[in-house]
Design a protein around this nucleic acid. Structure first.
Lengths: 192, 192
DNA sequence: ACGTTAGCGTGATGTACATCAATTAATTTT
DNA sequence: AAAATTAATTGATGTACATCACGCTAACGT
């Protein structure tokens, strides 16, 4: 269960075997079942999670009861509401497993300890944060400018994993279109 | 011109007068006229800019020639394509002055130097990055779930400055709606 | 002071997409 | 393996919003 994390870190920073083991000790392995929630809107998010197996989603529910997915987290992804973790604010989002999953959990306190102990681990997280921002900005731009069809084509090209692992209704929610529209777009694509 | 930057930093981190002056020396003051571009899509972004006076926009142009604004930068904002700066990639975005503006410019190299010299300055930037991400995530969520009318109401409540300083056509582009729709929404609001 | 351009508003029309409703297919449960 | 739930498809209809077209006003440049 830790090996996914170790590989992840190893491929990103220069680090010794001992340090890798030290890092691992900071994380608590947990298992969650499909449909289990790790965080609900209004709760303070106490942990970050690293996905070593499975898949989660982070989403917001609007007042009409519609869900809007902000993130799918597969293996080697981090999930959690960083803002809530950092500043003890109630979160706006839900985090839920969409497959039976294995996670490595770390609290704010331990994370800060770890940053102290292994500065390069912190650097890694800072770089990750930077990349996440860029990705999100790109998604923002595409959300603003793409038609439903273009959104689907784009996710096929750039995040096919989502298409293969997640129910289409959730893909639709991620793209900001209705599941019926997505269904029709897919039907049209086949005809070509 | 530097005083805006100094105030900005001072209100965010604990820092000496000497260090503030040292930091200032890393920045080159520049003036830009309204409609002047600091960055065009395809160019590598060589600098970050701190806005000490005026207002800029960062936007993407889609293939139909429509513009999609990702960021308005007023006084005390940072602009620039961080991804392009960091990794020397051609930028996807344009950066343009919407008002005659005064900026403090810093190159990647100088910025890295500065990070070394004044670690707390770097910490400040890291925290900023974190906040930007959270804001963007919130915007993403609103873009996905709000109607045109709700988007307008939201910007009135949370970013009235945008409404007062930038042309409505740009507000529309920022919200991801047409300028006509925005105009009609505003007309309706008056009737209540 | 003039023509020119930028900004905003408003009506008429079009359409991409949502919503509603019913059916079928796939998964999960027992 | 049947029953029950959940997910995906398909058609009919509705609507929020875009697009097109035009006029008005204010600001800008020469």
């Amino acid at each position: 269960m830790y090996s996914v994390l170790k590989n992840y870190i190893n491929s990103r920073i220069q680090i010794s075997e001992t340090d890798l083991n030290l890092i691992s000790e900071y994380f608590l392995p947990i298992k969650v079942k499909k449909k289990q929630f790790l965080l609900r809107e209004g709760e303070i998010c106490k942990h970050l999670w690293f996905v070593s197996k499975g898949c989660l989603r982070m989403f917001k529910e609007d007042r009409k009861g519609h869900e809007h997915i902000l993130l799918f987290a597969f293996e080697e992804y981090w999930v959690g509401d960083r803002e809530s973790v950092v500043s003890d604010k109630p979160s706006d989002y839900h985090v839920e497993a969409i497959e039976d999953s294995e996670l490595l959990q770390i609290s704010k306190e331990k994370l800060n300890d770890l940053y102290q102990q292994i500065p390069s681990f912190r650097e890694m997280h800072i770089a990750l944060q930077q990349r996440s921002f860029n990705k999100l900005q790109e998604r923002m731009q595409k959300t603003l400018s793409f038609s439903a069809e273009e959104k689907y084509a784009d996710i096929m090209n750039h995040q096919p994993e989502i298409l293969h692992r997640v129910p289409l209704s959730m893909v639709a929610s991620y793209l900001g279109i209705s599941r019926e529209t997505l269904s029709r777009i897919r039907a049209n694509q086949l005809k070509r």
